[in-house]
């Protein structure tokens, strides 16, 4: 537990200095606040909060997890941590917990526009989505040899996860494909602010995506470890 807390503490200290990752955490919450308060045209209620929340889930946790792990691998600081007695699972839990906490803080900022009765459901959906996204990001970070390979793998995955809910609003064919992606189901659930709006299929997709992310994560970890 002590090592997990040390990793979280280290990451928190690094947050302000690691600008590319910091931007990921701040970008959508700030955009949500600005757009919801500054744009006053005929739009569906809380349009930006709902759209940006699914984009946030698909982007911030994934980019943060992949970037942090691959940077530590490339700079050989991860190896130093392992040599100092930090176990791989402690490191991964520490980094994941840190990303999840920051994403939940970002989600809380985005939730400020919502009616208070919807906030628990919104936060629960964001929390679940962030966990899936962290697993996928960690999987990329573990699998990629260095930061450059991480970027090449991360960008297309991030684009699919974060932009498919938005594109699905404008194109039926994209919607048909996007419905199998967890970010789209989070968007649907958040639109209706209930599991009923996502339906059984939506909940099933969430669980299937989570299971797939978990399997991929363990496969990558088993094959590559944290070396």
């Amino acid at each position: 537990m002590k090592n997990i807390l040390t990793i979280i503490k280290k990451q928190i200290k690094d947050t302000v200095k690691n600008k590319p990752v910091l931007i990921q955490f701040l970008m959508f919450p700030v955009m949500t606040l600005v757009f919801e308060n500054a744009i006053d045209v005929d739009m569906p209620e809380l349009f930006f909060t709902k759209m940006f929340s699914s984009m946030y889930v698909g982007m911030a946790p994934l980019v943060a997890a992949a970037s942090i792990i691959s940077e530590e691998k490339e700079k050989n600081t991860l190896r130093v941590l392992m040599m100092a007695g930090v176990r791989p699972f402690e490191y991964l839990i520490g980094v994941s917990a840190y990303i999840w906490i920051l994403c939940m803080a970002g989600s809380a900022v985005m939730a400020t526009s919502l009616p208070s009765r919807d906030i628990p459901f919104f936060m629960a959906m964001m929390g679940a989505g962030c966990i899936i996204s962290i697993f996928i990001g960690a999987c990329i970070g573990i699998f990629a040899k260095n930061q450059m390979v991480t970027s090449s793998l991360m960008v297309p995955v991030m684009l699919i996860l974060s932009f498919s809910p938005m594109l699905a609003m404008f194109n039926d064919k994209i919607e048909k494909a996007a419905r199998f992606v967890f970010t789209q189901q989070i968007k649907v659930a958040v639109d209706g602010m209930s599991f009923e709006s996502a339906g059984r299929f939506g909940v099933g997709v969430l669980f299937a995506n989570a299971a797939l992310a978990l399997v991929l994560f363990f496969a990558a970890f088993r094959k590559k470890g944290l070396e």
């Binding site: 280290k10 200095k17 700079k75 050989n76 600081t77 130093v80 040599m83 007695g85």
Partner: peptide
């Protein structure tokens, strides 16, 4: 492992941290 200190040629340091903060991470561990 705590009785062993290892400095390998390719071991890195946390570039964005100060010297003190680099050592604080390991002092905590």
């Amino acid at each position: 492992g705590r009785n062993i200190g290892i400095m390998m040629d390719n071991f890195g340091v946390y570039d964005r941290f100060s010297c003190i903060d680099n050592l604080k991470v390991f002092a905590d561990i």
